[in-house]
Amino acid sequence: MNIKTRALKKSLWVYHLSTGSCNNCDIEILDCLSPRFDIERFGMVLVGSPKHADVLLITGIVTKKNLERVKEVYHETPKPCFVVAVGTCACSGNMFRSGYNMAGPLKNVIPVDVFIPGCPPGPAAIISAVVKLLNKLK
C-alpha cells in the first residue's frame, strides 16, 4: 500500500446526498458526527460540496426527479471516490419499490461500492460499513 492510499484511508471526506429518503438515514449519518460516535476520530469530515468529497453517502430510493442529479454529483466528484448506499431504500427500494416515481435502486444508476441495509442502519452500522470499505482498499 503506498502513501497515497494510506492517506486516503485516513482522511475520507464524506458528502451526503439524499435522493428521496425518509430522513432517518440522514439523521443517523449526522448522528455519526455527534460526540458519542464522533467519526472525526478517523479523519472523516462531512463536506458541503461534492467537489471536496471522497465518499458519497447516498440515502433513499432514487426518485425520477433526482435521477439526473445523482449522476451529475457522481460525475462531479473527483476520483477516486466511493459510493455507499445507506439504508434499505438505497439498497433495494424497500416498500417504495412499487411506487410510480421510483427510478432506482441506486445500483442501477451508478456503481455502488458498499451497501448498508437497515431501516435505518444505526450509526454503529454505518461506521462498521465504512471500516469494511477501508479494508477493501488496497
Partner: peptide, 12 residues
C-alpha cells in the same frame, strides 16, 4: 493526511 490525500485526487 488531508493534504497528501488532496494531492492524490483528481483536480477538476
Amino acid at each position: 493526511t488531508d493534504i497528501i490525500k488532496l494531492s492524490a485526487k483528481e483536480t477538476s
